[in-house]
Design a binder for these strands. Sequence first.
DNA 1: AATGAAACATAACAGGC
DNA 2: GCCTGTTATGTTTCATT
Lengths: 161, 161
Amino acid sequence: MVETKRIRVSETLDEVDRILVAGLQADSRTTNSRLANAAGIAESTCVSRVRSLISRGIVTGFTAMVDPKSIGLGLQALISVNIRAGARTHIPAFRDSIRVMPRVVQVFFLGGSEDFIIHLSARDTDDVRDFVLENLSANPAVASTRTSMVFEHFYNGVAPE
Amino acid sequence: MVETKRIRVSETLDEVDRILVAGLQADSRTTNSRLANAAGIAESTCVSRVRSLISRGIVTGFTAMVDPKSIGLGLQALISVNIRAGARTHIPAFRDSIRVMPRVVQVFFLGGSEDFIIHLSARDTDDVRDFVLENLSANPAVASTRTSMVFEHFYNGVAPE
DNA sequence: AATGAAACATAACAGGC
DNA sequence: GCCTGTTATGTTTCATT
C-alpha cells in the first residue's frame, strides 16, 4: 500500500509570531529581551518561539544589508534573459550556473515572456557589459538579453499578514 | 571663489572589513566573538570595526529572511509597469506610493523600456489580480502592466569584491 | 506552552600599552 | 589596534504552573 504524504506549505502565525517576525525583519540583531518586550511575552518564551520560527522554516536566515555603492559597485542593472526554444532542457543547469556568478545579487526564474531576470550589482558599465558578454551571450543556450539600468531599489521584506 | 566638493561614494574595504561584511551577511546574528575570530582580530577591535561599517553606511541594516510560502503567500510575481508618456511628472509620487503597498517585497525603478518592476508576494492569483487592478490599473498615470509568475527566486546578497 | 529567577555567557567600556 | 579587568547586559536552563 502506498501512502500519500501531505506536505504542509503554510503555517498559521499567531499575533505573537507576527510581532517576532516583523521585529526580526526590522532588525535581526535586536536583543531577545527587546523582542520579548515588544511581543509581551517572557524572554524564555521568546527564545523558544524564535527557535520554533526557524525550525518550522518560516524564518530562513539572518543577513546584513550592504550598500553596493559604498563598496565600489555603483551601478545596478536588471538583465532579462531568454533561452532558445531548442535549448530549454539546459535551463536547470544554466540556472545553477547563474546563481553563483560574481556580481549576481538575485535571480528570478520566470514563467512568461522572459525566462530569467538577473539583478546585477556592478562597478561600472564596462563591468555590466563584461558580465553579459562572458556569462550570457557566450552561452549558446541564450537567445537574447535585455539590460535595464536600476535607478533606485527598495526592499521591504515579506510582510506577515 | 567657488569650491568644488568631492563626495565620497566608495570606500575601500580592507581584508578584515571584507571578512566582517561577509560574516554578517552570512549570519547577522553571529556573535561578536565569532566574528572577531573569523577575522583574526581582537573582540574589542571587532566591535569598533563593525560600528564603523555601519556608520560609514556600508552595512545599512540587519534583517531576517522569511519564506513567503510558509506564511500563506504561495505565489510570487514580477510586475512591469509603464507610466504614460504624459504622466511622467507623477513618477516620484507614484514611486512613493508603491513602496508602501501591502504585498510589495521590493521595487526597482528603471531606465529603459520599463519604468518599474514590482516584486510581489501574494496569497494566490486572485490576490495578484486584485493588486494590479486596485493599485496599478486604477491609476490613470499607468499606461500598461505585465505580470510574470516567479517560479524560483534566489538571493545572494552583495558580495564585497 | 508559558513563566520567573538563578546560573551562565557575552558584550561594552575604560585605562594602559 | 590590542589587551585586561570590570561592569553591564543579555541569554539559557530548569523547576513550576
